[in-house]
Design a protein around this nucleic acid. Structure first.
Ligand code: MN
Ligand code: MN
Ligand code: ZN
Ligand code: ZN
Lengths: 139, 139
DNA sequence: AAAATAATGATATTAATTTTCAATTTCCTT
DNA sequence: AAGGAAATTGAAAATTAATATCATTATTTT
């Protein structure tokens, strides 16, 4: 982890209240605590946050993930589940097992460059990108 | 256009009622009629369909796009708009202008192959993929 | 043609997210 | 430090895309 959410907030002028700090912590720790491919939805975040401070409302969780997302701190995913799922914005891609729902994260420099090249070709500067691969395990 | 929705339905065992046929037609014509980057949501489809047959209900539009999607005829997009948007499933990608919302469609063989290669590297057979590039126009 | 099956339209329901609003906390200005 | 403005919060209501229900209509099957 290169930069903490707190630092990113400071840099982006996002004020950190007690509630936001706790929510930030839960998100930061979600990978370490719950495994590599953890992409919690708001309900799940609310559950985890509640264990730290049971008075935090789900409205605040919704407000905070939105705030963090708009500040570029979090990435919101709309996988097929219907609920939005969140994680730290660290520029990786996802390979999703359509049988099990397992999510594998990957980074590929070649893809990154190719995407930049394509945007460039159409006269655009690439500022964000989303790549999801759906596959079935080969036996 | 290589294959009509009607043909795809027949091939996939999807029955075409009058209502479905009209909805299929509206979707097929959405590009020609409304320009290159047309990705209508259900409300918009309902509006267009209603001009042809005002008795078709929005429930039927919802049911039909779901049916077509499950048959692999349509692709459902969850862009940032909140509403799902639909178009013919023809395996292209999107470059979205984050200032104007304009959607540019593109196909890139190199990206296609690279994606297959990555899935393969993780032991998966690629069955679907979604790539969205977000950019700002260079001046 | 009669019975069974499927699809439709209208409406109710669900569920995620947003909004409202009064209360509390934080931030300014003096 | 005090007082008032501004921002944030919790609880609850509102919104809204999408789905489910159900009586009616259309299509198949016998
Ligand atoms: Mn990247
Ligand atoms: Mn492809
Ligand atoms: Zn991830
Ligand atoms: Zn498209």
């Amino acid at each position: 982890m290169l930069e903490t959410i707190e630092e990113k907030c400071q840099k982006n002028g996002v004020k950190l209240t007690d509630q936001r700090r706790i929510i930030a912590r839960v998100i930061s720790e979600s990978k370490k605590t719950y495994g590599e491919s953890d992409h919690p939805d708001v309900d799940e975040l609310y559950n985890r946050v509640s264990q730290i401070d049971s008075k935090i409302s789900i409205a605040t969780v919704y407000r905070t993930v939105k705030l963090f997302e708009e500040a570029g701190i979090l990435t919101k995913h709309d996988f097929k589940s219907g609920k939005a799922r969140y994680e730290l914005n660290d520029d990786h891609n996802h390979l999703i097992d359509i049988k099990t729902g397992e999510i594998i994260e990957f980074v590929d420099q070649e893809i990154e460059e190719l995407q930049k090249k394509i945007a460039d070709k159409y006269g655009y500067k690439l500022v964000d990108h989303k790549l999801e691969l759906y596959g079935i395990k080969k036996k």
